[in-house]
Amino acid sequence: MIAPKQSHLSNMDLWKQWKEEELIEAKKSLIEYYIPLVDFVSNRLAIGLPKNIFKEDLVSYGIMGLIDAIEKFDYQRGLQFETYASWRIRGAIIDGLRQGDWVPRSVREKAKKIEDAYQKLEQKHLRSVTDVEISQFLQISEAEFQQMVQDVAITTICSIDEPIREEESETRLSLLIDEKAKNPEHKVNEFFLKETLEKAIERLTEKERIVVSLFYFDELSLSEIAEVMSLSPSRISQLHSKAILRLKGTLGRMKIQLFNEQ
C-alpha cells in the first residue's frame, strides 16, 4: 500500500493532540498524512467504472470516509489505522456511488443473470463452465455474452470483499476485530469463509485466477496486469468481471447448501 506523507510530528503525537487535546491542526495534519490512502483506494475502485464517473468524485467521497475514520478511530486499541481507514474510505466511496444511482437496474439484472447462470451450471457439471456453455444457457450468442460481461464490469468493484454476506452492512468492519478478542462463533465463521473462498477460487479458469491474484494479492493495477499477461486492459477487466461473477455464483450456492444443512 502507498505510504502516507510524513509529518514534522510523529504519528502518535498527532493522534494524542487530536484525541486528547482536540487540536484541529492535529486533525488536519492527520488528514494530510493519510491522504495517500484515499488515492490508493480510489484507484483500486476505479477499475471498470463508466466514463461518466470521475476520479475527482471518488476522491471526494473517499476524503469524507477518511475524515470519518480519523474522528472515530481509537488509537489506543493498538489496531492499524491504515486498515481501518481503507475500509471506511472504500465504504464511503461505494455509498456515495450508490446514492448517485450510478448503476442502472438493467445492468444489475444482467449481472444477476450471469451470476445465476454460473451458479446453476457449475452446480450441475461440478466444474468451471465455458463462455459457450453460459451463452447457450442464456440463449444468446457468445459475442452478446462478452458484451454483457463488459456492461456489468461496473458492478464488480466491491463484490470480492463481501461475497457471502453482502446484505449485512457490518461485514466489512467485522474483519477489523482484534485477533485476541475473537469468540468461537467468529472463528468458525472465519474458517468457513476462508475454506469456501478457496474452493470458489479453484473453480476459476487459469487466467481468471491470475487476474484475481495479481489484483487482490499483489495489488497490481489494471494496466500493470495487462502488461504482465500481454493482454489489453479491456480484456483484463472482462476476466476480472467473470471471475467475480463466477465467485459470487459459487459462494451463493455454498451458502444455500450450508443453510439447508442446518
Score class of each variant (00 low, 15 high):
Gln6Thr: 07
Gln6Trp: 04
Lys16Glu: 11
Lys19Glu: 00
Ile24Leu: 07
Leu30Arg: 03
Glu32Tyr: 03
Val38Lys: 00
Val38Cys: 02
Arg44Ser: 06
Ile47Met: 11
Lys55Phe: 15
Glu56Leu: 13
Asp57Lys: 09
Ser60Glu: 08
Gly62Ile: 01
Lys72Pro: 04
Arg77Thr: 15
Gly78Leu: 00
Gln80Arg: 14
Thr83Asn: 14
Ala85Pro: 00
Ser86Val: 00
Trp87Asp: 03
Trp87Cys: 00
Arg88Leu: 05
Gly91Thr: 01
Asp101Pro: 06
Val103Tyr: 03
Ser106Cys: 11
Lys113Pro: 01
Ala117Ile: 10
Leu121Asn: 07
His125Trp: 11
Leu126Lys: 11
Arg127Leu: 08
Thr130Arg: 12
Leu138Trp: 05
Glu142Thr: 12
Gln147Leu: 07
Ala153Asp: 05
Thr155Gly: 08
Ser159Val: 11
Arg165Leu: 09
Glu168Lys: 06
Glu170Trp: 08
Thr171Phe: 10
Thr171Arg: 08
Ile177His: 09
Asp178Lys: 15
Lys180Val: 11
Lys182Arg: 15
Phe191Thr: 14
Leu197Met: 11
Glu198Gln: 15
Glu202Tyr: 10
Arg203His: 09
Arg203Trp: 03
Leu204Cys: 00
Glu206Trp: 07
Ile210Met: 13
Leu220Gly: 00
Leu222Val: 02
Ser223Phe: 03
Ser223Tyr: 08
Leu231Val: 02
Arg235Ala: 02
Ser241Gln: 05
Gly249Val: 04
Met254Glu: 03
Lys255Arg: 14
Ile256Asn: 04
Gln257Val: 02
Leu258Ala: 06
Phe259Gly: 02
